[in-house]
Design a protein around this nucleic acid. Sequence first.
DNA 1: GTACGTGCAAAGAATTTGCAGCCAG
DNA 2: CTGGCTGCAAATTCTTTGCACGTAC
Lengths: 153, 153
Amino acid sequence: MEPHPDEFGQQVSHFQEVLKRAGVKQTHQRLEIFREVMQTVEHPDAETVYRGVRQRIPTISLDTVYRTLMLFTDLGLISSLKTSHERMRFDANMHAHHHFVCTECGMIRDFSSPEFDALAIPDAVRAFGSTVQAHVEFRGLCWHCLEKKQHGT
Amino acid sequence: MEPHPDEFGQQVSHFQEVLKRAGVKQTHQRLEIFREVMQTVEHPDAETVYRGVRQRIPTISLDTVYRTLMLFTDLGLISSLKTSHERMRFDANMHAHHHFVCTECGMIRDFSSPEFDALAIPDAVRAFGSTVQAHVEFRGLCWHCLEKKQHGT
DNA sequence: GTACGTGCAAAGAATTTGCAGCCAG
DNA sequence: CTGGCTGCAAATTCTTTGCACGTAC
């Protein structure tokens, strides 16, 4: 899971290739932000990345970190665990249940599945802590967004 | 999944009982906010609940809706799909993977599982749209938070 | 050299809080 | 009656944007 030190060279080559292909410039800041996110297994927020990079580039600004993380997300170099300005949402269904999420419009629908409720906990997960609940999320496009896409092109 | 109209009476009884047990007052606003969240299957945000309730209580304010939704969450009447002021977080792992999440400190760790990647899609989910990806999240407490709890009490 | 990137400061969006009057118990 | 609840407005927090200068290509 954690990248071996000698993998980093490869990752940088990939990084450079992706930037070049996208026609964006390779800057000192971008490389250091990339390094910072690659080096950790902690899913950092922008502020955390900022603090890390600032040790190597003391003049970097937080908004550059934000802009760069967005750029990397758009280029598929990293992913973000929640989309920007995503709001708090509430759920009245208090029974164990799982979700279908439309990645286009944000639609969420519940479904229940005793099978998923009782998913076996892998050893790798036991190593992290004690699990209380398994939650499965299927991500894709809802029919409405699928139709819109087809008519669009 | 969608509550039957005649179930609503029961839900209100439960609502009243929970409020009474917690020693908080039952107000017009609280009942209408509860009704609004119960009536939908859409996992609304605070703004959406506000718009709905305002049709019945035009003078209600958005911050009352926020405070009430938080109260209901604390009382276990509803749940929230992301915790308050949760920040954007970034993930450098671009391979298919799943998460362990500590509900106490927010720690997230990756693990991979070909088995979970290929989870069979239930018919109920097919009805919602076309699934691209299955993602499993195990929620619980990490060892660090577990230890803290034990020492605490 | 030129267009893209950066840092600064200020704006924006979502959520929270302080306070004074109001109403459920 | 009285403390908890509400509505108002202003504060906070996280994230985004406009602009002038700097730098990779």
